[in-house]
Design a protein around this nucleic acid. Sequence first.
DNA 1: CTGTTTTTGTGAAAAAACTAACAATTAAAA
DNA 2: TTTTAATTGTTAGTTTTTTCACAAAAACAG
Lengths: 222, 222
Amino acid sequence: MKKAGTKVSVAVIRRLPRYYRKLSELRQRGVVRISSGALAKDMGLTASQIRQDLFCFGGFGQQGYGYNVEKLREEIGDILGINRGNTAVILGVGNLGHALMQNFKFGNNGFSVTAAFDVDDSLVGTKIGSVQVYHVDELEEYLQTYRVDVGVLTVPRAFAAEMAQKLADGGVKGIWNFANVELKLDKPDVIVENVHFSDSLLALSYMIGEPIYEEERENENE
Amino acid sequence: MKKAGTKVSVAVIRRLPRYYRKLSELRQRGVVRISSGALAKDMGLTASQIRQDLFCFGGFGQQGYGYNVEKLREEIGDILGINRGNTAVILGVGNLGHALMQNFKFGNNGFSVTAAFDVDDSLVGTKIGSVQVYHVDELEEYLQTYRVDVGVLTVPRAFAAEMAQKLADGGVKGIWNFANVELKLDKPDVIVENVHFSDSLLALSYMIGEPIYEEERENENE
DNA sequence: CTGTTTTTGTGAAAAAACTAACAATTAAAA
DNA sequence: TTTTAATTGTTAGTTTTTTCACAAAAACAG
């Protein structure tokens, strides 16, 4: 659909999951079709932007009709790689790793978690849900044996760099990094996606202290 | 420092916490001064961008010298509101809320957590660390009694909207939203900061499937 | 003390992102 | 069936963001 070699901007890519989420919600509510205008209003964007974004990947709509919710959702899901059968392993079954394994719906996002790793011997050998916990020492061999697309890094920050390197050496394509450090890898083909809680909270901290942000919001709602 | 009424772009604000984090790290390593060029190289940005970003708030550097790490860190911290004595309450002491309370360093980001709320009677009355857990029914009164700047929303998605409304009605300035829903509030002066795990994972999913992103990364590292 | 190098602050240029506009097409109404 | 209204794909224009370029200031070397 998209011209080969064409680069889609990061800004667009960051909006795709939001579209997917909104379309999933619409589908669940039984909505069959939606126009870019209605979607825009619902999401606080402009209709133009939505059409432009989708245009990057080819037209999924129909003039005079709009977009079929089910079909558009499928298309965006495909673009995002939801049907690619991605696999992930969890590094660090502490509080956060545990919470992710128990609460986060990896399956809804096209990932299956195939293993977890920790150094704590009281965890090794147990199962979280249906996922086996291995000792970190077994990581290397595991990565050589099974295809793992993404490593989820939920270890304490002190161990993050070392674990990230092991994941990269083991051939993962991406690292979902929850450790509060900027990872530097020698493998440039490994994508690092950071989830920095503190960055998020500090941005919020700034915004609640700046009256100008309130004004902006008011205009937005017209 | 910044001209009153001037709006700083969101892109800049999102970089400030990264600067703060990097400067904290440099300070800890005993680095006293740094140039925009060195900082840029370390962070994968351009020197120009860093100077431009800081220029939004006034000049913190010195020509021919660079930036004093300690001083710049302080300044950015002030801009972000780290010394404003912000308070936060946790809504939902499930897996994630618990993990945040135990692992996340609110203090490092200028926040003190003053209370937590849940519906589970087996949790109500207990303490997580030094933080008391109250029943959600007591939220309204609590918000009327104490100043709460931010509500941390870690409830199941089904309850997110309702709880968000209570927080907004109670007068919080911001909501740190971990529930996987787009919140719609009738109070436009309440800032919502979303932490959407699934959006993040799906963006990563897209990028590991697109060879073009690898190329981009390679150029970045020159 | 003088000259050279470093480095910022800042305006201008370039690039990227977003919005507007509209012909082409479809759906719905008359 | 014909007309009217709705809506997309797509190009062009506008705005925002990023990068470039360089004078001014400071540090450093000799």
